[in-house]
Write a protein that binds this DNA or RNA. Sequence first.
DNA 1: AATATATTCAATGTATACACTGATTGCACA
DNA 2: TGTGCAATCAGTGTATACATTGAATATATT
Lengths: 212, 212
Amino acid sequence: MSQRQAGESLEERVYREIRDMILVGDLKAGQKLVQEDLAAKLGVSRTPLRSAIAKLGRDNFVTMSSRSEAVVSEFGPQQIADLFELRAVLEGLVCRLLAPTIERKHTIFLRSLMASVEDQVEKDDDPAYREADIEFHTYLSDLMPEQRFGQLLDSIHSVMRMSLSQGILRSSKETYAEHIAIIDALEARDQDAAEQAMISHIRKTIVLLRNR
Amino acid sequence: MSQRQAGESLEERVYREIRDMILVGDLKAGQKLVQEDLAAKLGVSRTPLRSAIAKLGRDNFVTMSSRSEAVVSEFGPQQIADLFELRAVLEGLVCRLLAPTIERKHTIFLRSLMASVEDQVEKDDDPAYREADIEFHTYLSDLMPEQRFGQLLDSIHSVMRMSLSQGILRSSKETYAEHIAIIDALEARDQDAAEQAMISHIRKTIVLLRNR
DNA sequence: AATATATTCAATGTATACACTGATTGCACA
DNA sequence: TGTGCAATCAGTGTATACATTGAATATATT
């Protein structure tokens, strides 16, 4: 049972719990979420549960069918690839909008982040490297002041985390170099270059995803 | 009083009503939405109202502050421009993903849509042309099977509709030609060209928005 | 038997009542 | 006057009870 954090509403807790059940496979694709059953299982009333489900629907972890039942969304290779398409343009846009005004301390942080795992580059599929990879992308997304992007990318990154842990992966050597290229473009405050660097970085992964 | 459509829940009706109040200026930026007051005003209980507000928050018509109060979001030139940045990459992606498999009947429809307002191109700021412009974009977005994009673009288009009616506009002659270029690229099933055509089309408007 | 029309039931939608929380007011005391 | 602290209150969060819906089953009619 997950404890209720201070300042966290039941709705938020329930949202996370259900989302994690989906990502872990506890709730399987196509399965219908019956409000009373789930509420009982989680020990809350239907009120916060319904809010949580609605939010899951907005983040596309569940799909609201016509008769307004909520069914767990499918996360097959096709869906993940589509999600990465979205991620590509969104993170590209983040770079584009960030580039003109990004501060030194931020690019410095990103460089040190990558430097800290430089040694792991040679051995592929290293957990520490993967963590740094994700951190690189979430850090950039969090720099965006405009809420909208952060919200969007949050839910995408949580799916990404799952799919990465399933071993969809490119060689660290390649991605490392691409990350550096992105930092360079940002530091040069070159909007177009930064956007393109990020987009092509992510689209290389998409090519892999589509050929499985 | 807006009638309740068959098959429409109170929550949906209330969502639309509040959204329109915001877009029309009935509810002003920075104003706080007090649940009991609004519920009374709209003649519903707080239950569907709360759901509607949550959804408005998700679509960024209102901002959820720390103490979980909902305040009406600002839609200044800056915000609209940022929104258009998002719109540009999303609609660009729509073109990219649609291009490989788009059917003839769809490009034919788009051509006939533009042809039907070809005469209005010379006189700038014609209502019929503006309608066709919006229809062009919503039609394309609706072709995407992946729900996620449609949902996102829906809320963006409603804001766009408002801002267009406030006279933020480029010459019809230019935009007409760009629309044709987009159709050409789609018909040629050229992913990159279609994406780029759409992006640059929208970004030209953004330049205008940023220089006001 | 086949179709049409009630009936039932499970699940969701909505309203209301109650609980909590954080901010503000008013008062006591120095 | 200023500071600490209790009381108050407005507003949101949650639970429960009731209403509605629509799908499935049963019943009737030809």
